[in-house]
């Protein structure tokens, strides 16, 4: 079943991961441009905008920061919001643990620096289907980071470079990508039950709980199904 050999983290694998995620990353640039433009309009200085995209590298949290930005910024509410939005990364990192545990700790944490939705989904899909590589996580992460930064700069300099991203379906890229990753893996009754529980919990959280709790609620609900319904020994 699961490999006990450490996943590959070579330059060639990272290069492959980079090119595999680059087409999707180009759409990420459109969101980066939207952020760059919004940040300029909010009144952030150019250095601060680039500094934020380069070091925070988390779109939703960055947009949320703009909402709280003014002559004075409430630091603690901003950091609590940032943590709440990015709490999904805690779950995503945890799902990679069985493989990352086999990698020396320096490389283990270094490969998580650019962890985000798309490169996590692709890397997990690779690992679960027996492609024992971290190329999509690291190389794909670098592709996403570079295009996020390039998009931010383009938005600051030229405004949103696509007049109406929705007309081209750009707003659905992440949704279609996540759906394709969900359907790419192997399915069984157990995994479908986890999806249903996770989807229902996320839906309920999105309607009734505070904003940005839906991913954690869905992930934990699916995790409980997985913990209670164990796979039979082979």
């Amino acid at each position: 079943m699961r490999s006990t050999v450490a996943p590959i983290l070579s330059f060639a694998e990272c290069r492959r991961g980079f090119w595999r995620l680059l087409p999707l990353s180009l759409f990420v640039a459109a969101f980066g441009a939207a952020f760059g433009l919004a940040a300029v309009q909010t009144g952030l200085q150019p250095f601060d905008i680039v500094f934020m995209s380069a070091t925070v590298f988390a779109g939703t949290a960055q947009f949320a920061a703009l909402d709280l930005w003014g002559a004075q910024v409430p630091l603690l509410p901003l950091l609590v919001t940032t943590l709440a939005i990015n709490a999904r990364m805690l779950l995503m990192g945890a799902t990679l643990y069985p493989w990352l545990a086999l990698v020396p700790s320096g490389r283990r944490y270094a490969s998580l620096v650019t962890l985000s939705d798309a490169n996590w989904a692709m890397a997990l899909n690779d690992l679960q289907s027996g492609r024992n590589t971290l190329g999509a996580l690291v190389g794909g992460g670098i592709a996403l980071w570079l295009t996020w930064l390039a998009g931010t700069l383009a938005g600051m300099l030229f405004g949103g470079f696509i007049a109406d991203p929705r007309a081209f379906g750009v707003d659905m890229v992440l949704g279609c990508f996540m759906l394709s990753m969900a359907l790419a893996g192997r399915r069984n009754a157990r995994s479908v039950a986890a999806w249903v529980a996770g989807g229902a919990a996320a839906w309920a959280a999105w309607v009734w709980l505070p904003a940005n709790t839906h991913v954690v609620a869905g992930g934990l609900a699916g995790g409980l199904v997985g913990a209670l319904w164990l796979e039979r020994d082979q």
Binding site: L91, H214, G222
Partner: peptide, 24 residues
């Protein structure tokens, strides 16, 4: 890491994908 924890991780992996999708 035991079987139950692994089960939890596996169940969580797929449902995080779905949970990201739901509001979209």
């Amino acid at each position: 890491l035991n079987r139950r924890v692994e089960g939890f991780i596996n169940g969580m992996a797929g449902s995080v994908l779905i949970a990201v999708l739901v509001p979209i």
